[in-house]
Amino acid sequence: MKPNFSMTQRLLMNPAAEGGLSAGTPQGGDSPAAAAKRPNLIEETFRKLGETGGTALIPFLTVGDPDLDTTLDIIEQLEQAGADVLELGVPYSDPLADGPVIQRASARALEQLITVRTCLDVARRARERGVKMPFVLFTYYNPILQTGLDLFFEEAARNGISGLIIPDLPYEESEDMLQRADRVNIALIPLVAPTSSERIEKILRSGRGFVYCVSSLGVTGERASFHDGVDAFIRDVKSRTDLPVAVGFGISGRDQVQRFSELCDGVVVGSAIVRTIETLIPDLMNADKREDALLQIRKFVAELKV
């Protein structure tokens, strides 16, 4: 059954969304001006890691795959496994930048009627459970657009979102979003690709939080090997910015994390984690095996931490 309520009606029906933030929430409902002055939690995290020479482990999961309670349980496991920043993937009907693994996760989550609003709720509920790491919302442009930009940014800030990745919003189309994000101290994280060449300079100029280097041409998904030029590409980006640089797309195992951690400040692992969750769905849905399945996910992610 599909709910028929408008976004505003949903908000009214969910008073918890309006308040109830834990004291520890760093970006909880104060004025936009005040919010803009505080350091962003992503920047704080990278600064602390920088002091010890550590590399941020940035896992990705699709919210609501296989259901919301499991997502919340997995988020706790990810933090305990050593995750530093979390990408919360908003499921979308037409995920252009994603390979089959995340496409399937999106489809499963959409069966659970997951919306942008639900994803923001998950961020708030994870905070209430004591999860400390910064949250980056990964979403295609259209779901935010239909939420309404004013409402989206207000709610994202209120629910403790520190960063935003919009894979189909290139620099040229991002001005309005960047200004709106700045006003509520949310980092609109720029993506640079191996094909960006002379575009890198202007993309970096408006960068916030960290720079997301797309490791290779193509969509998300595990890769056995990387293009020869990838190291030079990452070094080039590193040399042009003071922002932390994270690498993603195709990184799936400890060796690869190790390899990239020598070049940059953070490593994103997406499809490999989503696939691990996918294979464990029957166990996650079985009360007797759930605990063990959650531990397996934690173990898989802990292995990635270098």
Binding site: L96, L169, P170, E172, L191, V192, A193, T195, L217
Partner: peptide, 19 residues
């Protein structure tokens, strides 16, 4: 910018922009 009034534009992954 490839706009027809408010329509059109270029909403694609960065990898395709230079192409």
């Amino acid at each position: 910018k490839g706009r027809y009034g408010e329509f059109g534009g270029r909403f694609v992954p960065e990898t395709l922009m230079n192409a």
